[in-house]
Structure formats: structure tokens, C-alpha cells
Design a protein around this nucleic acid. Structure first.
Length: 233
DNA sequence: GCGACAG
DNA sequence: ATCTTGTCGC
């Protein structure tokens, strides 16, 4: 608990140093249990950013029903925001709330999909990778835009992808998850290879460009949905 | 030195 | 991320 107490109250310089160190603890090969439950995580903000809202949705994995996976559990957790948004340091702003949401979760997922980058990060520790270390679970980062890395043009057909490169290293994939729609950036976080990450994202692809777990977490975390729930009550 | 820059 | 209605386009 001591580490937790300080990990989220670091100066930018300290946080950057910690990222480089933690990135070395990431596992880049597959170490994943048979998947029964998949969690999707998304973070939102309220009160002009003063409050951080973490949403986690757990879906039951079923090859037959995919991508229409039944929702098993949903959790929304709120707490005061600790840090401003600084490109490259997103995890220090979002993970505390995410951990709060996971603490309230009853179901234990075997795979977690996160809104943001995995290792496609300047120091290879995007929010999905950082969260994976904390949860000690396989994580995949699915970002709607690029943080770092270069890539060729992606084909227009659903499923087309090109590697996202940093120097000579492959740090992720630019995936056309929906035909003629802006691609998403997929990168492994912890305990998964890029190939396996892409397989799971493809398997969970529903009607929109985002895989179902993060799409549903997004919806649960959205301001609109919060209102909708209140009005429905 | 000049941009770029997840959510 | 968030502020926010209607509207342009396939």
C-alpha cells in the first residue's frame, strides 16, 4: 500500500522515470488463462475535470454468440481527480479510478481491454500496459488516435492493418476495424503478443469501430448514458 | 530550436 | 476528455 500511496503522487519527472522502470516488467508473450470473461474499461470526467469516473463492463465470452456477448456486470466508480492530463502520463491520471472500479467488481475477467495505448507509448507504458501490471492480467490497448510511432497507409477493408513502428520495433498495429472509417491503434499491454491482441479485438468487433468491451464501457461512462439512467429511474 | 502530443 | 444542435453525407 505504500507503493500505491506514492505512485500516484509523483512529479512528471518522477513519473517518467517510473514508467521506464515498470516497462521492463511487462511480459510480451502470451500468458493468458482460458477466457470466460472479458472486461472493458473507460474513464470519463465530470465537474469540469474535478471528478474522475471509471466504468468497467464485464462480458461473457462465447465463440457462438460473438460479437454479441452478454453483459454480466457493470461498475461505475467516481473519485477526485489527482493529476491533469499530460501527454505520455495518462495512466497516472486514470488508473487510480480504474483500480477503484475493479475493486468493486465481483467477476474476475481473464482479459481486459482498455481505451488508450498499450506499449505504443514513448516509454512503452501506456495506460493499458500500466493497468495490466497492477491487475496482473492480460491487457490490450485500443486507442482512437496515435500517440507515438509511424506507419504506412492502411487498407480500406475491415480487418486490414499495418504495423505501428518505433525505430525498428513493432509497438502495435493500425487496424481498420470498420470499412471506410478512421482506424484504431491496437497495442498489447501486458501478458499478450500483438498477434493475440489483434485476434481478440477482431473477435469482439461489433457494429462500430470499437470492440464491444470498450464500446460498452464507453457508453456506460458517457455523460449521456449517465443522464439516461437517471431519467429511466 | 520547432512541432507532436492517448484521454 | 468535455462543452453541445443540427446537419452534411453515404
Amino acid at each position: 500500500m505504500d507503493a500505491a500511496l506514492h505512485e500516484w503522487n509523483l512529479s512528471p519527472k518522477q513519473a517518467i522515470a517510473l514508467q521506464s522502470q515498470l516497462a521492463q516488467q511487462l511480459e510480451s508473450s502470451d500468458r493468458i488463462d482460458p477466457v470466460t470473461y472479458i472486461a472493458g474499461v473507460d474513464i470519463g470526467f465530470e465537474e469540469g475535470g474535478a471528478v474522475t469516473r471509471a466504468a468497467v463492463v464485464v462480458l461473457k465470452w462465447s465463440p457462438d454468440m460473438a460479437p454479441q456477448l452478454p453483459v454480466i456486470e457493470q461498475v461505475v466508480h467516481r473519485e477526485p481527480t489527482r493529476m491533469p492530463y499530460i501527454p505520455g502520463l495518462l495512466s497516472f491520471r486514470e488508473i487510480p479510478a480504474a483500480l477503484g472500479a475493479f475493486a468493486k467488481l465481483t467477476t474476475q475477467p481473464q482479459l481486459v481491454m482498455v481505451d488508450g495505448q498499450g506499449i505504443a507509448h514513448p516509454r512503452r507504458l501506456g495506460v493499458a500496459a500500466h493497468l495490466g501490471l497492477w491487475l496482473d492480467l492480460p491487457t490490450i490497448g485500443i486507442a482512437k488516435s496515435r500517440l507515438t510511432g509511424i506507419h504506412a497507409e492502411v487498407g480500406e477493408a475491415r480487418g486490414d492493418w499495418v504495423p505501428l513502428m518505433a525505430k525498428q520495433e513493432v509497438i502495435g498495429a493500425v487496424l481498420r476495424s470498420r470499412t471506410n472509417v478512421k482506424p484504431v491503434f491496437v497495442s498489447p499491454g501486458h501478458r499478450l503478443t500483438l498477434a493475440t491482441s489483434l485476434e481478440w479485438v477482431m473477435r469482439c468487433l461489433g457494429p462500430t469501430k470499437l470492440p464491444e468491451p470498450t464500446r460498452l464501457a464507453d457508453r456506460l461512462a458517457s455523460r449521456r448514458d449517465q443522464k439516461r439512467i437517471k431519467e429511466t429511474r
